[in-house]
Amino acid sequence: MDDFSQVPAVHISRLHHVYPGTRHEAPRLALDGVNLNIPTGAFFVLTGPNGSGKSTLFKILSGLTRPGLGTVSIHGQDLLAVPNRVRRQMGVIFQRPALDKHLTVLENFQIHAGLHAIPSHQFQPRLDAALAWSDLQTRLHTRVGTLSGGLARQAELVKVLLHEPQLLLLDEPTAGLDPGGRMAFMSTLRRLQKKRNVTILMTSHIFAEAEQADLVGILRQGQLLAMDAPSRLTARLGNEILVIQADDPAAIAHTLTNRPELSWQIHNHELRIQGTQLPTLMADLLQAQRARIQTLAIKQPTLEDLYITLTGRALTSDEEEENR
């Protein structure tokens, strides 16, 4: 996917957001200088632990919150200056469900059509087109409260497709779905992107989902640590990494200090080594350090490995870290 057009779908520069404090809480820096360029037609996944600022970024992109500093433009238009014009081009799915569960699926769609001023003669054709992306055809008169989690998420997607957005913003759309539901939802998004050339921005704290995207951003404590194609991100760790589990990984690492071509991190009881000729190293270590090693494996690096390398920690919540 390198044929992205010139004007980026989303251009964010120097974005900061500080939540005002309350009587009980100090102000909180949620976004700390984010710069981001997302080409039109791209599938972008923003990952990061809970509390890293993903939803805050989405609230700003959808115009719900105004940032204290920074600029955002969507298809070249300044979001903060002409929010209403920009909003018409966006379909937003929030982390929390946005359908009225006492109403039927169809009634919810009608409300959406009313709010987006969709002409009534266009409602039916658009509904048919949007429904084709879902399994909801026979469930239009079901109350949303009785739909399964997966179908409810599909209903959210159909709803935002009604006004034919060019940019989809989805905040943890797969949260609460089972693995099958997740996969199905992700592949629907993929097809939408390809067939309609919709730009998709979604957040997820699941790295495996991010690996399916064109572009991945990793956010931590309000800062964008890295942003690139997933294959290029993992390539930063080389083709392979050697992962050793041991009671005392530091002791094993100590034996590597005379090998400048290697780099490693220790995390809990895990030693992760990057470098060249890892299979040879593996054999050597097996011989010399057998007693200390519980398991060892060579694997292709994943985004999660990159995250651990970048931050030196596993994916815990940023909030938990602060409370420690």
Partner: peptide, 20 residues
């Protein structure tokens, strides 16, 4: 009224080490 964030410059000058 639209929710809006504080000016980070002022926020940082108030608490140089950030939120916690």
């Amino acid at each position: 009224q639209v929710e809006r964030g504080l000016d980070p410059a002022r926020f940082i000058s108030q608490s140089p080490k950030g939120p916690s």
